[in-house]
């Protein structure tokens, strides 16, 4: 009885092990990372633009796959790289497209972007080949310190106050001026009262 039971357990073990192995093989085939990198690797760097401290230079570099593919070296030039920045204004932190650039022969695509806000920002680059297949994506963060360029438009002129507004402002300014005058007058009056002549007068009166 026990021998039958142990053979069933062994059989079950073999079946489970085989299924697990098959799953690993399938997953490894499905995921290039697991099976070895056979597609180009995308890297993204963000630096302050050399000629414009207020801008950031996004540099996406497409590198040869770590493991050679059967067709030989992969062409790195002419790949479309789209850049985007993660925005937190909306739920899910979606990506806001910044622009697209083609890689050169060395696999480098560059986009200069001027942040519209300061602080930490997350940039994402996605490479897509001509067939529209994604070759991978990369992220990087950058802390924008310089303030965005000054507002280039025209500032709306201050709307003129209406008659009531002008009257209120005038009355309030008059009150402020009156308070200043009273306070300064108090100081002047006290100091005049403590002047030499008054002091002598008061001393004389007292004596």
């Amino acid at each position: 009885m026990s021998r039958v039971l142990s053979s069933k357990v062994a059989l079950g073990g073999w079946i489970i092990s085989s299924l697990a192995l098959a799953a690993v093989v399938v997953l490894a085939w499905a995921s290039p990372a697991w099976a070895g990198t056979t597609t180009p690797v995308l890297r993204l760097a963000a630096e302050v633009a050399p000629h414009d401290p207020g801008a950031v230079e996004l540099l996406a570099t497409l590198e040869q796959p770590r493991e050679p593919v059967s067709s030989g070296r992969v062409s790195l030039g002419g790949v479309s790289v789209s850049f985007s920045v993660r925005v937190e204004e909306f739920s899910g932190a979606p990506l806001l497209a910044l622009g697209t650039a083609k890689t050169d022969a060395a696999g480098i695509a560059m986009l200069t972007y001027r942040p519209t806000w300061t602080g930490r920002q997350a940039f994402v680059a996605t490479a897509t080949n001509e067939a529209g297949t994604s070759l991978g994506s990369a992220t990087t963060t950058f802390i924008a310190k310089s303030s965005p360029q000054s507002f280039a438009g025209t500032v709306e002129a201050v709307r003129p106050d209406g008659a009531i507004g002008q009257a209120v402002a005038g009355v309030l300014l008059s009150i402020v001026a009156l308070i200043w005058i009273v306070l300064l007058a108090v100081v002047v009056r006290v100091n005049l009262g403590l002047g030499p002549s008054r002091a002598a007068e008061s001393s004389g009166l007292k004596s």
């Binding site: 006290v190 100091n191 009262g193 008054r198 008061s202 009166l205």
Partner: peptide, 16 residues
């Protein structure tokens, strides 16, 4: 100033 502590001076200062 020329504070002497006289009554007029004190009245003036207290009022202020």
């Amino acid at each position: 100033g020329n504070w002497t502590g006289s009554a007029p001076q004190r009245r003036l200062l207290h009022g202020a």
